[in-house]
Design a protein around this nucleic acid. Structure first.
Length: 501
DNA sequence: CCGAAAATAT
DNA sequence: CATATTTTCG
């Protein structure tokens, strides 16, 4: 029988009650199958495939502490802020972690997971491995950015991602190093080159770097070299292109409010998990992490990525995310506009918005709140008040929404219609004083509330991809009907916004 | 700014 | 290939 990831995870989670392992605390377990040997090696971890390290009885770390370490480990910038290299830091690591400075809890997670996925890992083909490696990179960047997002006093400076900055600068090839693969067909050639400079750059020009990071980059570089000519390199490179992009993006998503180490860890973990296709929606995990993951998942989508499917499948379950231009007007400008630096940096495309159920819910209620005739993009957008959401986004969604409604109305409500006119909405059932030019849809839409609502909702919530029936288990919030999810929503709405207008 | 249709991305 | 989202256009 097929290996049940959901079950495995569940079992995994069941093992501990300790806060250190509580996903809600921000530590999302990464299973061994998800951790490429390469990474393990770079981090000085014992080979996970072989000897499964016995899961230590109890975590020694204070959850918060481990999270901090985790976060800092993944983020050079953060480490700088933490005064990495200082005696305090060193001591802390030495004292609390036995393996390469990784938080014990993290290691434990790997260990536990490895026991369960050992088999699988052994069977992985070279291709899968490759894809994984790429995925790891991706995950790393996601985590990196996510962590950076919460860097204590650095957050504001993050609008100009440290790493990415050096990446772009160093990769003097003003060509299109960071180009996130414009056309799928042209991806190959250009993408093949992109990663090269990126790697060397990040390895060399990021000042305060944790030794482990060096190892990682070194290992990856090495790996890359060995794959250099093979066709496989293509996929690897392709996967790496997004690496740069995702890093830049997530940095832009930085939110001033999200500055606690815990949040950082949560975000980092979630992001990493997401990048791996493990959009395991953990209750309480920072909405930002989830959001980031959702976005990043979109970038991991190499057809060779074994986890791409999962990522896709999970995407809708994640908290809605938006390229938050940030609350600060001064910085917000830099978002979608191209950096004028010196031509080395290219404009970054705003990531595709994913209309998650939560987001759609907001949209819907906004539409209801406003009347039929007031429900136009701009108003809806304002009503929703979601950071980073653009009018275009709404307009588009509205178009689709109306389309569905119309279709639905006509098909299921042919004659008796109005019976349901129920006004779950107030404010203008009869204010149809708009005899004018208005849309023909108006009438149809007004009625059928209930009937269509369901259908529409369904249509909107339907998961995009097929495949992977795998776990959706723990997540649970994918459902449309159920309430909850409020927490996430709360996290979503934040500062008013922006985007360029 | 709106809405529809074309173009892309997934 | 079908959809979801983004862009373009009137």
């Amino acid at each position: 029988m097929a290996y049940d990831t959901a079950q495995a995870l569940q079992g995994f989670y069941g093992i501990k009650d300790d806060a250190s392992f509580d996903p809600a605390a921000g530590l999302v377990p990464l299973t061994s199958a998800l951790i490429p040997p390469l990474v393990a090696q770079a981090f000085g971890l014992p080979t996970l495939g072989g000897v499964a390290p016995p899961p230590p009885p109890q975590p020694l770390l204070q959850p918060q502490y481990s999270q901090s370490l985790y976060g800092s480990l993944m983020n050079p910038a953060l480490m700088g802020a933490f005064g990495y290299g200082g005696p305090h830091y060193a001591t802390a690591i030495q004292q609390h972690s036995q393996l390469g400075g990784l938080p014990l809890s993290y290691i434990q997670a790997l260990a536990a997971a490895s026991q369960q996925q050992q088999q699988q890992q052994q069977q992985q083909s070279a291709a899968a491995l490759l894809a994984q490696t790429a995925g790891a990179f991706h995950a790393h960047s996601a985590a990196l950015a996510a962590a950076a997002r919460a860097a204590p006093s650095t957050s504001s400076a993050l609008s100009q991602p440290v790493a990415s900055a050096s990446l772009t600068e160093a990769s003097s090839g003003r060509g299109a190093p960071l180009e996130p693969a414009t056309t799928s067909t042209t991806t190959n050639s250009s993408a093949l080159k992109a990663p090269q400079p990126s790697l060397s750059a990040s390895a060399g020009s990021v000042p305060p770097q944790h030794p482990l990071m060096h190892s990682l980059y070194a290992a990856i570089a090495q790996q890359q070299a060995s794959y250099g000519a093979s066709s496989a390199a293509t996929s690897y490179a392709a996967a790496l292109g997004p690496y740069a992009a995702s890093q830049l993006h997530s940095a832009y998503y930085a939110r001033p409010s999200d500055t606690t180490p815990a949040a950082a860890a949560a975000a980092a973990a979630a992001a990493a998990a997401g990048a791996y296709g493990y959009q395991h929606q953990v209750p309480g995990a920072g909405p930002y992490g989830a959001a980031a993951a959702a976005f990043h998942a979109g970038y991991g989508g190499s057809s060779l990525d074994p986890y791409a499917a999962l990522a896709a499948a999970y995407r809708p379950a994640a908290a809605p995310s938006f390229p938050a231009p940030s609350a600060k007007p001064q910085q917000s400008g830099s978002f979608c506009d191209e950096d004028l630096d010196d031509g080395t940096t290219r404009a970054i495309k705003r990531p595709r918005l994913v209309w998650t159920p939560q987001l759609h819910k907001k949209f819907e209620s906004a539409v209801q709140k406003l009347g039929v005739d007031k429900a136009v993009p701009k108003n809806i957008m304002q009503e929703m008040n979601i950071d980073g959401l653009t009018r275009e986004n709404v307009a588009s969604h509205l178009q689709k929404y109306r389309m569905l409604r119309r279709k639905d109305a006509t098909s299921s409500e042919g004659r008796d219609s109005d019976t349901q006119t129920v006004g779950s909405k107030r404010s203008e059932p009869d204010s149809a004083r708009q005899a004018g030019p208005v849309a023909p849809a108006a009438t149809a839409t007004t009625a059928t509330t209930t009937a269509t609502a369901t259908t529409v909702a369904t249509a909107f919530n339907a998961a995009p991809t097929k495949g992977t029936a795998v776990n959706r288990s723990g997540a649970g919030n994918g459902g449309s009907g159920s309430g909850a999810a409020t927490g996430t929503l709360a996290g979503l709405c934040g500062t008013p916004v922006a985007a360029k207008s």
